[in-house]
Simulated scan of single mutants.
Amino acid sequence: MEARLEKLRDSRVVVTGGAGLVGSRLVRLLRRAEAEVTMLDRLDAYPDAVHSSLFGVDSLGAKLVVGDVCDREAVRRVLAGADYVVHAAAYADVAACTRRPDIAFRANVQGTQVVLEEVAASEVRRLVLVSSAAVYGNGDPSIRGPQVFREDQRLLPVSVYANSKLWAEHQARLLLSGPDTPEYAVLRYFSVYGDPQVPKPGSHSWMVAWLSMQARLGRPMRLNGGGVQVRDLVHVEDVAAATALALVEDGMAGATVNVGTGVPTSVREVGELIAPHFPRAHFVTTPLPEGDPLGGYAATEHCSELLRWRPRIDVRAGVERYVRWLSATPHAVPKWLAAEAAA
């Protein structure tokens, strides 16, 4: 992969949302490829300590611009002279978007519109738009059990978050498909996990982090709907690699590709991988949250063909890495979560 990223040497790359989990791993990879990187981030998705000590934003060797993708002037300034853009900034949580659709609209729709318009008017070579497997919703309602999600199937989003991501995909095609516009590529991330991921209050996403921290604190691992939902868990390091490659692979121009492993894993199976590491681990079944897809896994043929990429870290190894990291990094447990456990 390193040889393929040689194209990025001395190039200028802008990563919106670059201080987040995926963004910070991506920026680190781009810097290793000797790209000049600018991050545009509001720095409000997590406490400062998460960005600095866990995500290592201060030590990435990239320029950090604290700003909002809805601020057209800020976006225009960071895009000046850029060769590539990864648009990863988003209000990126199903439950949070359901509670606050106004914030989701501003960040995921209005902010994306600003980025797309400014990219279209720039000298950028290619934009990589980060989308989500949430656009598939529950898939084909006539199919019972786990189902594979293919890039060309009918999309039936069932949440505010998914709607905003699907809109962004359509808008990228509309604004960046002309003969004189920059190229674009769309990546549909499946369930991203891996250290140094930490949960957010009121969220039911990031299940490896959630379940691991609950088990470590001796709290019940909550299995929404009994944990029968299937997810395609893809490690954050693999996601960062796929995203970097999407900037330079010729076959990705105008393409939409799943970023997943192609392997279905139930929530309960994840819990059972975590439980042996924590003596007080136990389970409790809770209702399925509104808008939470029943699940599926990625078709990976397009990813293999167009991106020429396959994930390297399987679920068992990735979960093992996460629980070991958590055991060695006790301050990773959010204060609000530790306080709830102590109450």
Rank of each mutant, 00 (worst) to 15 (best):
T38Y: 01
R99S: 14
A95P: 06
T112C: 06
V75Q: 07
N108G: 03
V114A: 02
N108A: 04
R72C: 00
T38M: 03
V66K: 15
L116C: 11
V75E: 05
K63D: 15
L79Y: 08
R100Y: 13
N108W: 05
A80G: 13
V114Q: 07
Q113L: 14
Q113G: 09
L54T: 06
Y91R: 11
A89K: 01
R32E: 14
E34S: 14
A33N: 07
A49G: 12
E117C: 08
A88E: 08
G61S: 10
V65L: 05
T98I: 09
L54K: 04
D83Y: 04
S53W: 10
R99Y: 11
V37P: 04
D102A: 13
A90F: 09
A96C: 09
R31A: 05
C70W: 01
D102P: 06
Y46S: 04
Y91M: 06
H87E: 03
G67D: 01
L30A: 03
S59F: 08
D83W: 03
A88N: 15
A45I: 02
A107V: 11
F55R: 10
R76W: 08
V86Y: 02
G56H: 05
A104V: 06
V65T: 10
E73L: 07
E73M: 07
R76F: 11
C97Y: 09
A96F: 10
G67T: 03
V114Y: 02
P47V: 07
E34I: 01
C97S: 15
V50L: 03
A35R: 09
A62H: 04
T112E: 00
L54S: 08
A89T: 03
L64E: 08
A62V: 04
A95C: 13
D58H: 10
A82Q: 01
P101D: 04
D58L: 07
D48G: 12
A74R: 10
D83A: 05
A95Q: 15
A96H: 14
R106F: 01
M39P: 12
R72G: 03
D71S: 12
P47S: 06
V57Q: 07
G56P: 10
A89F: 02
D58S: 13
E36P: 00
T38P: 01
D58K: 08
R31C: 09
N108I: 08
A107G: 00
A107H: 10
V66T: 13
V85T: 03
A74H: 05
R99F: 11
G111C: 01
V69I: 13
G61E: 02
Q110I: 10
E117K: 13
P101R: 04
G81P: 09
V114K: 00
S52V: 14
R100T: 11
D102F: 07
V65C: 09
D41T: 03
L79A: 08
A80F: 13
A92C: 14
R42M: 14
V115Q: 00
V65S: 10
Y84A: 02
I103K: 08
N108Q: 04
G61W: 03
P101G: 05
S52W: 09
E117H: 13
G61Y: 09
E73D: 12
V65N: 06
L40G: 07
A62C: 09
A92D: 10
P47D: 11
G81K: 11
A107Q: 07
Y46H: 12
Y46V: 02
V115L: 06
V50R: 06
F105Q: 08
A89W: 04
V75N: 07
Y84M: 03
V94H: 02
V115K: 00
